[in-house]
Nucleic acid binder design. Structure first.
Ligand SMILES: [Mn+2]
Ligand SMILES: [Mn+2]
Ligand SMILES: [Zn+2]
Ligand SMILES: [Zn+2]
Lengths: 132, 132
DNA sequence: AATCAGTTTATAATGGTTCTAAACAACTGT
DNA sequence: ACAGTTGTTTAGAACCATTATAAACTGATT
């Protein structure tokens, strides 16, 4: 019920698959980061029916376009997504490829002094790479 | 001559291909950003002989490992490299996928207050996404 | 219920990157 | 200079995350 309106209001039909993916992504204590492969595993664990990989991709991209997910820029062969769509920064643990949220109070304001003509700043993202 | 010592000192044999790639990458007025595809085109334009794609990949990765190139984390289906290996930040023009260097004086120091046990900070990179 | 538009799915295609293994080129020691 | 050794290049194949395809299906609308 909780996600039916959210989907309808976004112009997305509340299908069984999308509602199940919503449960996995948004019905959680805390936000989290994931790759499509990790999400696929999570979905398999949480539900008994099967959702095709194509649908997982379609849904993640639909949710990203609607602003319910965002991509995190990291150097990897896989795309990282975040269910935390607020402006925030990240630690990136090179050892295991895991992201950790930095609270804004952990970083302090980023002041970009330079401007590019005819361009607006869409986002400012800090990535702090961690090694042992 | 200029790059022969650089390569030898790095434990890399100064082959014809590596020297040619050095010319394209490092014998320039300014540093620049590139994808492998763009580098391949640049090499084709600058030299008449052909260098195989595998060698371009091998060389770029060898140079990256030696610290003569670095990867820039962006959300893209291609890996972005930078011949500017100093600590600096970037604008990323979403329209055309081009990176622009931000001088450190354009950003001001980034102060990461939080620490992760047993981990060292390897790098801090700011990506400023630009839209129209 | 009939229709329409949107969605799911299995599967194929795409494309950047990496692997393979054979040919080749640079170094070393003599 | 030569032979032996090791590192490098190469064409092509393999890999694999992602996207495209198009037929079956489902939800919304009348
Ligand atoms: Mn990569
Ligand atoms: Mn991608
Ligand atoms: Zn996050
Ligand atoms: Zn740069």
């Amino acid at each position: 019920m909780k996600y039916i309106d959210k989907l309808r209001n976004s112009g997305l039909r509340p299908t069984k698959q999308r509602l199940q993916i919503c449960e996995v992504l948004f019905n959680t204590e805390r936000t989290f980061h994931f790759t499509i492969n990790e999400l696929e595993k999570k979905i398999k664990d949480k539900i008994d029916s099967k959702i095709s990989l194509a649908t997982i991709y379609n849904t993640v991209h639909a949710f990203e376009k609607k602003g319910y997910l965002k991509q995190i820029p990291v150097n990897s062969n896989q795309t990282y997504f975040d269910t935390n769509t607020t402006n925030h920064h990240h630690f990136y643990n090179l050892k295991d490829g895991k992201l950790i949220d930095l609270e804004n109070s952990d970083v302090g304001p980023i002041n970009i002094k330079r401007k590019i003509d005819g361009k607006k700043i869409k986002s400012i993202e800090v990535l702090v790479k961690l090694e042992d």
